[in-house]
């Protein structure tokens, strides 16, 4: 299949105006009529050039993220989500966590059995104008919170749980590089792909970069203006 695609690429590339094929044809217009061997030679050269161009650009598969399918009426006027994703689907992806849980409730779901979270003990997340508190867990210790991730990530990677009014409203996965994993992009993509099929009424997921970090935020749709606030606003 790879070879077949490269062959097709070669054929199409060779046929492109301005990609060598036309120039050769144009320059050789008179010469081709008088010297058929020159035309054949030029065509061969173009073909080789096409193969070289194809070889420089190996085929790669583009990842595709699946949005939740919509069910329209027969006139295409109104829609609903075709598959009703329940908050239970979200909980399965988030190791049992649900939006709205108190820090004490969240403690029950964290992999570290010694964790005992209380609102008053949590540090303030200064990037928010509201009184948002947080707790963070090293990615290595995140257990089922990173069960979708098989690709590598650096040791400084971590998961942040954010609370507003004593209720969980966001889980933020921050994948950072290190010497053993210089590019954690694939890890972030794996995680993100699991959340994109959820309806935006269940969870709002975004993927973005902050410096060398790949961030996946999954936020409660009821969080209002907090939904649009990203990690890069930290400290500003």
């Amino acid at each position: 299949m790879q070879a077949a695609r490269m062959t097709e690429s070669r054929i199409v590339t060779a046929a492109h105006p301005g990609a060598g094929g036309n120039r050769a044809g144009h320059d050789g217009k008179g010469a081709h009529a008088h010297r058929p061997w020159l035309g054949a030679l030029l065509a061969g050269a173009v073909s080789i050039a096409g193969v070289a161009a194809a070889a420089q650009a190996p085929d790669t598969t583009k990842p595709i993220l699946t949005l939740p399918p919509l069910q329209w009426d027969d006139r295409g006027v109104s829609w609903t989500y075709a598959t009703q994703r329940a908050p239970g689907d979200l909980a399965r992806l988030m190791a049992g966590l649900k939006f709205g849980l108190t820090p004490e409730d969240v403690s029950q779901h964290l992999p570290d059995p010694g964790a005992n979270l209380h609102w008053s003990d949590l540090p303030v997340a200064k990037e928010f104008s509201e009184d948002v508190r947080y707790v963070w867990i090293p990615m290595q210790a995140a257990g089922a919170l990173r069960k979708l991730v098989t690709a590598c990530f650096g040791e400084p990677s971590h998961v942040v749980l954010l609370f507003l009014n004593k209720a969980l409203f966001r889980v933020s996965w921050r994948f950072l590089p290190d010497q053993n994993c210089p590019d954690p992009h694939a890890a972030a993509e794996e995680l993100y792909a699991g959340f994109v099929p959820l309806a935006s009424t269940v969870a709002v997921s975004v993927h973005y970069r902050v410096g060398s970090a790949e961030v996946v935020d999954v936020t409660d749709p009821a969080a209002g203006s907090l939904i649009g606030q990203r990690w890069q606003t930290r400290g500003q």
Partner: peptide
Amino acid sequence: TVTYLVENVVTNETFVARMQFTPGP
């Protein structure tokens, strides 16, 4: 089903959006 491919040019991510139509009577 009418299926679209859409792209986020900032994150360079491609999404598939499937639109299913209830058949008319």
